[in-house]
């Protein structure tokens, strides 16, 4: 697999902090993968996201995106065109006076021709299901709606990597599903690499690969199945278990013991049904 992002021995310290926020961290992100990064608040996840597109620069070490390095100021624009970040709080990223203008802003910045711009704006707004709000002003939108517009703004720039920094944490269940399905579609159909920084373990369960962070370092990495089997490690990282694993453990307390743990509701129901049918 082609390596898109390379993080080499990166440490980062905020000027006001006594300790390193990230300590000697190395990782690779590969083309087309959906990578979930989970970890407690303050584990350094969001700092890492900002280092990946040069919003922050490493105190030591190097961040490379497709052979461009964030340390070279002249290459930052190339990197930022390739790496779009959707942040946690939509209010801090809404710059337009309407949904249309907001999505247009990024494209203007990158000098996209007008005709193409109009088409890209409409397509990306439709992708996040905000067609009915194209002329709406930001203060008339709820937090969740603004977040969908922010995602449209990123999609419009056709990046090779989308970073979701807790981007779905403010959406209602269906809205969250819509956004994840949309990004999933971009990931599968257009090969866009997705790095999702999330507290939503149900979402992380569906990733190709999971990284667990703790106190500025990578605690473990692997497939969701490998990572989420390790209850002790997750609890040590200040996290919880995904729903189906928790239910599996609770079932054991009530005398229903399954041989293995199951990551999704579908798998768990099927395993229980097999167990019951064998009776």
């Amino acid at each position: 697999m082609k390596e898109l992002i390379t993080v080499n021995n990166v440490s980062f310290q905020y000027p006001s902090e006594e300790n390193l926020t990230l300590a000697d961290l190395s990782l690779s992100v590969y083309k087309g993968e959906w990578l979930a990064i989970v970890g407690h608040n303050g584990s350094g996840k969001s700092t890492l996201a900002k280092l990946l597109n040069g919003l922050l620069l490493p105190t030591s070490g190097e961040v490379k995106v497709e052979n461009y390095t964030t340390a070279n100021e002249k290459e930052l624009w190339e990197i930022r065109r390739r790496v779009g970040i959707v942040f946690q709080n939509p209010d801090n990223q809404f710059v337009g006076t309407s949904v249309r203008d907001d999505v247009a802003f990024g494209l203007e910045n990158f000098g996209v021709p007008r005709d193409e711009m109009i088409e890209r704006i409409e397509t990306s707004i439709a992708r996040v299901n905000m067609q009915g709000f194209i002329e709406s002003e930001p203060h008339h939108l709820s937090g969740g709606q603004k977040q969908r517009v922010a995602i449209a703004g990123i999609i419009a720039q056709k990046p090779s990597i989308i970073i979701l920094d807790e981007a779905t944490s403010m959406l209602d269940p269906m809205g969250r599903k819509e956004v994840i399905d949309t990004v999933k579609q971009l990931n599968e159909e257009e090969g866009i690499t997705v790095i999702s920084i999330t507290h939503d373990l149900e979402e992380a369960v569906r990733a190709d690969r999971v990284i667990v962070m703790k106190q500025g370092a990578i605690l473990t990495t692997g497939s969701p199945r490998e990572v989420f089997q390790n209850e002790a490690l997750l609890l040590d990282a200040g996290l919880d278990l995904p729903f189906s694993l928790k239910l599996g453990l609770a079932l054991r307390d009530y005398g229903v013991s399954l041989k293995e743990q199951h990551l999704t509701q579908e798998e768990l129901v099927d395993a229980l049904w097999t167990l019951k049918s064998a009776d």
């Binding site: 970890g39 407690h40 608040n41 946690q88 709080n89 937090g143 807790e166 944490s169 403010m170 507290h199 373990l201 200040g238 996290l239 919880d240």
Partner: peptide, 12 residues
């Protein structure tokens, strides 16, 4: 929405 953005443990 007091727990928006908190990790699962913090949220609970």
């Amino acid at each position: 929405e007091p727990t928006a953005g908190l990790d699962p443990r913090g949220r609970k």
